[in-house]
Design a binder for these strands. Structure first.
Lengths: 244, 244
DNA sequence: TTGCTCCTCACGTCACGTGAGGTGGC
DNA sequence: TTGCTCCTCACGTCACGTGAGGTGGC
């Protein structure tokens, strides 16, 4: 049994065969991921059949987005084996995907604001983004999707109408507060009823969104949350009114 | 009107206010994105109110995933304005998202193969991935989704049954071909009927998938496509039989 | 001899993280 | 005087792309 000095390939041939660049193969050589079997007298890299097979495996694993270091580990049999690596990587990719989807949603929201406002100052953008950050702190992506759907259904004028309604309610409540009215007083029933209505419209009757809303008002500064409409004192008073 | 030498902040304070790191602020200084208004005698960076405002804008734009260079362009009023930048960036993010989704689908497919086969050799993986690459060449992501749904409904045994059925058909056709039977011969009707059935099950009666399948058999090497079941000669003969 | 393929440096990428080693400050 | 904050280098990241400048080969 003589070991035939079998076929070999130069770096350019290998590149053409696999769709990689020559530079990539140099790189794999440098980091020890794929060392050619031999060198020609002139220093040319000469790859053998084993190298070729290894390279096809490398390319396959690269198409899965694995980093070169992990590819080396899988091929050299360190690491917990292929399935574990693929599993872990899949989870990482799904996390990245979720994050990128959130970024896209932010961009869409900003684009929509830009469409509405024409070309606004960057400071309007900053304000918008702070509002969005607050939303993201209190609602899950899924909840935000549902809120967005309801907001779209309502339309711009509908949103404005709700804003105005809240402003009216708080105007009335501030007057009552300054007059020293008991928060439980029956005369405030119209405001209570209207607020219940508006909240129901906002939450869509969904309990988890109602809970998140509640949490937001408990933990966040009311002045920030309402964009200056409601200060801390009024918020406390209103809380008592609505609870009555 | 005296210009008051108003408030200023040191780098650490700014970092705490914005959630950035000191190093990041150093970096923004280095690349000229945010130069502090002044330096103290000892060389400390002293940021003024203008700097602070600019920094908040930078942070807002960073949250949209914009590269620092584009942020600088937007803030300095080069570039076509905010909306154009956001628009373009949104498109890039959506492209990236689509690509990442494809990667995830590949990973899921590989994971499923791994679950079925236990811990297979990497070469099985290579084969699987080549098959997937071939699929991706001929079917759109949407078509692949539909094919996947049908395959899942069929289950592993169902797929095997279909494979076996094709093997039977091609065995019969090979025999016929070697016996010199006319491709239009009525005696081949059972094979014709069975093949029509199998193809209908595969395409689910959807015309676009049928077209893609057709294209695949026209352009791809049949031996590769069928994983060795059908050579070029038999494929030509079978084509005539099915067309009859 | 002319192309063609190959070779080895070596810098650049993007937005910082992470030390090392040293100095001013309410 | 002791911490604390600040300073300036300067290397590392990940997988190569892109020259520069030079040499062997069926």
């Amino acid at each position: 049994m003589t070991e035939a000095t079998d076929r070999h390939w130069r770096v350019g041939e290998l590149a053409r065969m696999t769709g990689l660049t020559v530079r990539a193969l140099h790189h794999y050589d440098e980091i020890g991921l794929l060392r050619p079997q031999a060198r020609s007298f002139a220093g040319y890299r000469l790859y053998g059949e084993r190298d070729l097979r290894r390279l096809y495996r490398i390319v396959a694993l690269r198409r899965l987005g694995l980093p070169l270091e992990e590819i080396a580990a899988v091929l050299d049999g360190d690491e917990g084996g292929l399935s574990i690596t693929v599993h872990r990587h899949l989870e990482a990719v799904e996390a990245e995907l979720a994050q990128l989807a959130r970024l896209r949603d932010r961009l869409i929201a900003v684009r929509d604001v830009l469409l509405l406002e024409g070309e606004p100052s960057i400071d309007q953008l900053t304000t918008t983004m702070e509002a969005m950050a607050m939303l993201e702190r209190h609602y899950t992506p899924d909840q935000l999707k549902r809120l967005k759907a309801r907001a779209d259904a309502l339309g711009g004028e509908g949103m404005q109408a709700a804003q105005d309604a809240w402003a009216e309610i708080y105007d009335a409540l501030r007057a009552a507060m300054e007059a020293g009215t008991d928060p439980a007083d029956p005369s405030l029933e119209p405001q209570r009823a209207r607020a219940r209505e508006l909240i129901a419209a906002f939450t869509g009757g969904e309990a988890d969104i109602a809970a998140s809303l509640q949490r937001a008002w408990c933990t966040e500064d009311p002045e920030e949350l309402s964009h200056g409409l409601v200060d801390r004192e009024l918020a406390t008073y209103a809380g008592r009114v609505f609870a009555a």
